[in-house]
C-alpha cells in the first residue's frame, strides 16, 4: 500500500476491494452516508462502537476482520438489541500487504453475512509508515431494542444467579499462544463469535434476565467487578463450577496467569433471578455457542462490592480487577 501523492489510484483500489466484499444497496449508491429505515414501532435504537487493534492479526479461530464484526455486534446484542447495520472505518499503515487486507476484508464480509448484518458505510485512511500498527479497524453497530426490555450492568440483585455461556480465556490464550509461539497438543482457538442468535434464544426463554455482558478485555474478573460496582452488590463465584478448557488451564498454570483475567470474544455473562437460572442455562445449552454454559455463582449483599471466589479447597479469594497485565505482587 502506498499513501499520499499516488493516492487516487490507491483509494480507488481499496474502494473496489471493499465494494466487492461488502456489496449491498447502500454501498452501491456511493453516497457519503447510508439512508436507513426508521425502527419498527415500539423499538428504540441502540448504537455501539469499538476500535479493534490486535496482534497478531491472524490467529487460530479468527482474525481482526471477523473479530471487529463480532465485537461490535456483541456489544449491541448484550444490550438486548437485534443488530441491524454496521459501519466500518479503517486506518491502514503504508506498506501494509494488500493480500492481508484482502484476506481481512473477506473475513469481515463473511462474518457480517453470517450474522445477517450489512456493512452500510465506511471510510479508509492510509497513514505514513511507522504511524500505525498495520491496520486498525473501528466498527459501529446499530440495533433495535424493544420498548420494555431493560438490560444493564446496574440491574443485578442479591440472590440472582450468575451464568456464563462457556469456557473462559480461549481468545486471550489463543492470541498469546500465537504471539509467543507456544506449542500445545492441539491448537487453542479463539472463541470469537457473534452472540446475537444465542442472546435471542436466551431472552425468548427468560425475558426476566437482568444483566448481559460480554467479558472481553480484562476477562470475567473485570466484567464482574464492573457489574458489582454498577449494581452496588457483591458476587461470589464457585471455582469448581467455572468452565475452563483443560489446555487453557494448563497454559495458565505454567504461564502464571489467571483465566478469569483473560479476554473472551464469544462468551457472555448472564445474570437473572435464581428461579430462572435453570431455564436460562437450558436455553444456552441448546445453542451451539452455549453447550458449555454453567451457573458459576450468585449475587450477594455486600457493602464493599467484592467479587470473590470460593476456592476448590474451601477458602476464599478476591477476584481482582487488574489495572493492566498481571504484575507480580509477592514481596
Amino acid at each position: 500500500l502506498s499513501h499520499g501523492g499516488g493516492g487516487r489510484a490507491m483509494v480507488q483500489l481499496i474502494g473496489e476491494i471493499f465494494g466487492r466484499a461488502f456489496d449491498n444497496e447502500w454501498l452501491r449508491r456511493g453516497d457519503d452516508g447510508a439512508v436507513l429505515p426508521a425502527p419498527r414501532p415500539g423499538e428504540r435504537l441502540v448504537v455501539a462502537t469499538d476500535a479493534h487493534v490486535v496482534s497478531p492479526l491472524f490467529f487460530p479461530g479468527g482474525d481482526i476482520g471477523c473479530l471487529c464484526v463480532h465485537g461490535t455486534l456483541n456489544d449491541v446484542a448484550v444490550m438486548g438489541a437485534r443488530p441491524l447495520y454496521l459501519a466500518a472505518s479503517f486506518i491502514l499503515e503504508e506498506g501494509f500487504p494488500l493480500a492481508d487486507l484482502q484476506r481481512i476484508v473477506a473475513s469481515m464480509a463473511a462474518a457480517a453475512k453470517e450474522a445477517g448484518v450489512p456493512v452500510v458505510t465506511g471510510d479508509t485512511k492510509v497513514v505514513e509508515k511507522g504511524k500505525g500498527d498495520g491496520i486498525f479497524i473501528t466498527t459501529t453497530g446499530i440495533g433495535a431494542l424493544p420498548v420494555g426490555r431493560e438490560l444493564s450492568g446496574a440491574n443485578a440483585r442479591p440472590g440472582d444467579a450468575v451464568i456464563v455461556s462457556g469456557t473462559l480465556g480461549d481468545h486471550g490464550m489463543a492470541i498469546m499462544a500465537q504471539r509467543e509461539n507456544l506449542a500445545f497438543e492441539s491448537e487453542i482457538r479463539s472463541d470469537t463469535a457473534a452472540l446475537h442468535g444465542l442472546i435471542a434464544e436466551l431472552l425468548a426463554a427468560v425475558p426476566q434476565t437482568r444483566v448481559l455482558r460480554d467479558p472481553t478485555r480484562g476477562g470475567l474478573a473485570a466484567t464482574l467487578n464492573e457489574i458489582a460496582q454498577q449494581s452496588g452488590v457483591g458476587i461470589v463465584l464457585d471455582e469448581a463450577a467455572i468452565p475452563v478448557d483443560p489446555q487453557v488451564a494448563a497454559a495458565c498454570e505454567f504461564l502464571g496467569l489467571d483465566p478469569l483475567n483473560i479476554a473472551n470474544e464469544g462468551k457472555l455473562i448472564a445474570i437473572c433471578p435464581a428461579q430462572f437460572a435453570d431455564a436460562l442455562l437450558a436455553a444456552l445449552r441448546a445453542h451451539p455457542l452455549g453447550t458449555r454454559a454453567a451457573r458459576i455463582g450468585e449475587v450477594t449483599v455486600d457493602a464493599q462490592h467484592f467479587v470473590q471466589m470460593k476456592t476448590a479447597f474451601g477458602g476464599r479469594r478476591m477476584v481482582d480487577w487488574l489495572a493492566g497485565e498481571q504484575l507480580p505482587r509477592i514481596c
Partner: peptide, 10 residues
C-alpha cells in the same frame, strides 16, 4: 527472569 510472575515467587 521471573518465569510466570508470582508463580516464580512460590
Amino acid at each position: 527472569p521471573l518465569p510466570g510472575g508470582d508463580r516464580a515467587a512460590r
